[in-house]
Design a binder for these strands. Structure first.
Lengths: 344, 344
DNA sequence: CGATATGCTCGAACCGTTTCAACAGCCGTC
DNA sequence: GACGGCTGTTGAAACGGTTCGAGCATATCG
């Protein structure tokens, strides 16, 4: 009933050699004679021996696993990142523990504790807040850290991010150029830097156009999800007539899809009555009821680069230089912001 | 530079007790006097001691991690399942290694090897094929197995699934009742039982209506993704006029969204020219260009139940009874199949 | 007062690997 | 034939916890 897993000892006795030799066959086969190697390999197969990673880990002091902590597993933006990570760590023989902080500091903390106990080699994380004390602590314990989807808090962390201010700027400039002056910004929670940066980028675009921050009205959401987007619609519509926006810029596509649903339910047409711009350009943005204009981020690329940085540091801790990679976002214009699309 | 992680020995010497006592404070605090317990706790805090899970694991023989292997991380259906799993394993202090087989047997195999090396306590898996030899092998090595989103191959595995034949039946019956007689089934790869079951359920509905399997024309796709759905459209349109379907039933929502995009590109209106039904009812189905009729599965529930089954077996291996839980799917009708919606 | 039970603590064995110093042959050299 | 250099192999010491029998006070009881 219970596990009769063969150990290296069983292999050794079956092959008539010492455990050290078996270990050598596994790790430095060139040190072992052809003949013994063959016998050991045979024994391994016959017994179906699979080395115990916990033991190896214990002895070596460090494991072959990484932690990936994201804000929302259900957000395709993050699963695309995860795919990118996986594509590069898999071939390197690393396992990834995929954790969902759900945007909650408490959950994030619990997962980081767990990853510490696992003595993971490194952590790729999109932090919930700006508590870099926690990141420092990981570091001081010898755990490699790469900040994902955010610039690192200091020069001695690696990070991979996309210029969110620029993204916000692109989105709002696009709307301003289409003639919009009253714009709503739907996003939150405000503690996420991604949200504030996108907002501030938007404000910058307005100022460049001679308008003010008042023209980008902030509507906070408790979370950046479809449901929160739906709920935000009533607040947009509840604004005094004078402040009624003609366009909405959402902090991500999930919110935008929710807003779109909410507006549709209220018989408000997009883009005719209100223009809509999302962020991330997830695959579903293009398939939406009204194809969504969105700010594209190189999602898989983000994951791949982050994984490469951490592998680089893992393989050569001494020679490694911390880098803060910043990608550029790109505006993808679709129907949801094309006022003229139907009119014209 | 390198990790000076405190070990249980450091804690012991700092608190002036033996390592055994420290271990007891951690695992059976009631055996330790109030006084010592305090001293040990203090030492733990001062040193920032975090137990090494690999060591514990090694001694105990089994770890606190589970593996979750799914067909596609980027499919919201599976991330919702993952959420369900996570919600129930997290509080139980278990870590989950989330693996993406991507529908490829080779990748699945590599991940299972990895999970074996990790000596995970259990594996929740949506298998790529029907190679239950591999599952048997996990079992024989003492690794608990729960089959996800599929009925177990035999009575001595736990499984949590949804009745896919019934789902296919519901979808096609709905179309038949709306007057459709030529229906295309877009799905694949054919090796996935989920795909074949949904197809056969559809055939059953046709037969009940006095029609034949010929009326459900199979169009295989290489993968159940948005891109594959888009590509399938040309094949639907390439069918001889006589066999031209008036409705399409897709094996999942990703395919359906892709098909919808493809049709729109060809200026074919849904549902007026062709009706469309998806499967899974992911969140984005309702937000699609044309809100998608779909067959809903209790996604998070699926994940939760699976996790509960595995925790149950882990906690009481002897008393555990293997169970095959089967949920019922539910048809959610939206605009994409409502021929009358616009006409009426 | 001695025997026995009770409450805490200790120390050592053990889990399955890796690593490394030591060593056994064997060969060629001088 | 002693010697040094290779090649392969061995055995034991870690790694960091858990577990358990033994030991030692102290309290309980007859």
């Amino acid at each position: 009933m219970t596990a009769p897993m063969a150990s290296i000892k069983d292999v050794a006795s079956r092959a008539g050699v010492s455990v050290g030799t078996v270990s050598n066959v596994l790790n430095r086969p060139n040190l072992v004679s052809e003949l013994t190697r063959g016998r050991v390999r045979a024994a391994i197969n016959e017994l179906g021996f699979v080395p115990n990673d916990a033991a190896r880990h214990l002895r070596r002091g460090r494991g072959r696993t990484l932690g990936l902590v994201v804000l929302d597993v259900a957000n395709p933006f993050f699963t695309d990142i995860a795919k990118g990570v996986d594509d590069t760590t898999g071939p390197a023989g690393m396992a990834v523990i995929f954790c969902n902080s759900n945007g909650e500091a408490a959950r994030e903390g619990r997962y980081l504790d767990l990853l510490e106990e696992q003595r993971v080699q490194g952590v790729l994380i999109t932090p919930v807040g700006d508590d870099n004390a926690r990141l420092d602590r990981l570091r001081s314990r010898g755990i490699l850290v790469v900040v994902l989807d955010r610039p690192a808090p200091s020069r001695d962390f690696c990070s991979v991010s996309v210029d969110d201010r620029l993204g916000g700027e692109l989105a709002v400039r696009h709307l301003v150029e289409a003639g919009h002056e009253q714009i709503a910004f739907v996003g939150g929670p405000w503690r996420l830097e991604q949200v504030t940066d996108r907002y501030h980028g938007g404000v910058k675009a307005l100022e460049e156009a001679g308008l003010g921050a008042d023209n980008l009205r902030r509507l906070d959401t408790p979370s950046p999800t479809v449901a929160a987007g739906r709920d935000a619609v009533s607040r947009v519509l509840g604004l005094p007539r004078s402040a009624r926006p003609t366009a909405i810029f959402c902090a991500n596509d999930l919110l935008a899809l929710g807003v779109l649903q909410g507006l549709t339910r209220q018989q408000i047409r997009v883009p005719d009555d209100i223009a809509l711009v999302g962020y991330d350009d997830i695959e579903f943005a293009a398939a939406a009821a009204v194809p969504l204009t969105s700010v594209r981020q190189p999602r898989q690329e983000l994951g791949r680069s982050a994984a490469e940085l951490i592998l680089d540091e893992a393989n050569d801790p001494a020679g490694h230089q911390h880098r803060q990679i910043v990608f550029e976002p790109e505006l993808v214009v679709r129907e949801s912001s094309q006022h003229s699309f139907r009119r014209g």
